[in-house]
Computed example of a mutant assay.
Amino acid sequence: MAEWDGVGERGVYDDEHQAERDRLSDAAHRGDWAAVLAAVERSAEKSADLVNTRRVAGRSGWAPLHQAAWHNAPAEVVERLLTAGAWRTLRSADDERPVDVATRLGHAALLPLLEPAPLHRVPEADLRAMQHFLHALIRVRTEDFGVTTALVLPQASVLTELPDAALWFRVPGMYGGFGIQLEEVRAGRRLVVRSHCRIVGHSGRTHHITPDGCTLTESGW
């Protein structure tokens, strides 16, 4: 299952991992693609995938694919990032996807590569509505467990790119997190969200989220 990296403040990661993330973000900012690709490949070997990493506590929210769009990187670089699992639908702090950055700057050659190709089609309005309820649920649940770490909350659109349409959001200080699954049902699509704290017995809850709201369907597991 893919993992959403939602740490929004420095000092949460250990020094080595923070430095690794900083080096990757710096290399992408410079357009040093050899360093970026090497870092991405190393992280995949360690099962600590950083291809969609954003600078911790950064203002832009840009991942390497956004930087590739900005720099008009060679197509081979973009293709290797995509092969490594870069998300075309990931939005920046300004709500831009990599394809939007390339379009804005006139980097037309990259547009066919960067155009999102969802495996699971959901109307944009439905995704945004479900994301609204998902974020509200996460805020309530993390507050219940006393989480004080600044978080960058998951983007529902990313689920449309993933073969299993599933994300794990590990929350620092919660000793657990949120498993988020996009499912097809007769009425359309919904999110199934399972959350728990492993040091609190029977804390597990399952919620179903549709564009119309969020419903608790199971608790105490």
Results as ranks from 00 to 15, higher is better:
Phe169Gly: 02
Leu105Glu: 00
Asn52Arg: 06
Arg23Phe: 11
His71Trp: 14
Glu124His: 13
Phe178Tyr: 05
Thr206Gly: 07
Arg21Tyr: 11
Ser157His: 09
Val77Arg: 01
Glu184Trp: 04
Thr148Asn: 12
Leu50Gln: 08
Val192Lys: 11
Trp70Pro: 01
Asp5Trp: 15
Trp4Ala: 13
Leu24Thr: 06
Arg194Gln: 14
Arg205Leu: 06
Gln18Glu: 15
Trp33His: 04
Ser47Met: 14
Val171Gly: 06
Arg88Gly: 00
Glu20Ile: 11
Trp168Lys: 07
Leu65Thr: 02
Ala86Lys: 06
Leu50Phe: 06
Val36Ile: 11
Cys197Trp: 01
Trp70Gly: 00
His71Cys: 08
Ala109Met: 06
Arg190Glu: 12
Leu119Ile: 11
Met174Glu: 04
Ser43Pro: 02
Ile199Ser: 13
Arg21Trp: 10
Leu82His: 08
Thr89Trp: 00
Glu161Asn: 01
Asp164Ser: 05
Ala75Gly: 14
Leu105Trp: 08
Pro163Val: 03
Leu119Lys: 09
His66Glu: 09
Trp62Gln: 08
Gln18Ala: 15
Leu24Trp: 07
Arg190Tyr: 02
Ala108Glu: 13
Glu9Val: 07
Ala2Pro: 12
Asp94Arg: 13
Ala108Ile: 06
Phe145Lys: 00
Asp5Ile: 14
Ser203Asn: 03
Arg170Tyr: 10
Ala108Val: 10
Thr142Ser: 09
Glu183Asn: 08
Gly11Ile: 03
Ala166Thr: 15
Gly31Gln: 07
Thr160Pro: 08
Arg189Glu: 02
Val78Ile: 06
Ala19Gly: 09
Gly106Ser: 00
Val101Tyr: 04
Gly179Tyr: 01
Ala73Arg: 02
Arg91Ile: 09
Arg23Val: 12
Leu65Pro: 00
Val99Lys: 00
Pro163Tyr: 00
Pro211Lys: 01
Glu9Ser: 10
Asp49Leu: 13
Ser47Gln: 14
Asp26Leu: 10
Leu153His: 05
Glu161Gly: 02
Leu162Cys: 06
Pro74Trp: 03
Ser195Arg: 01
Pro112Ala: 13
Glu115Pro: 06
Ile209Asp: 03
Arg21Val: 14
Asp5Arg: 15
Asp212Cys: 02
His107Ala: 03
Thr217Phe: 03
His208Ala: 08
Glu115Cys: 07
Gly177Thr: 08
Asp94Val: 08
Asp144Tyr: 09
Asp144Ser: 10
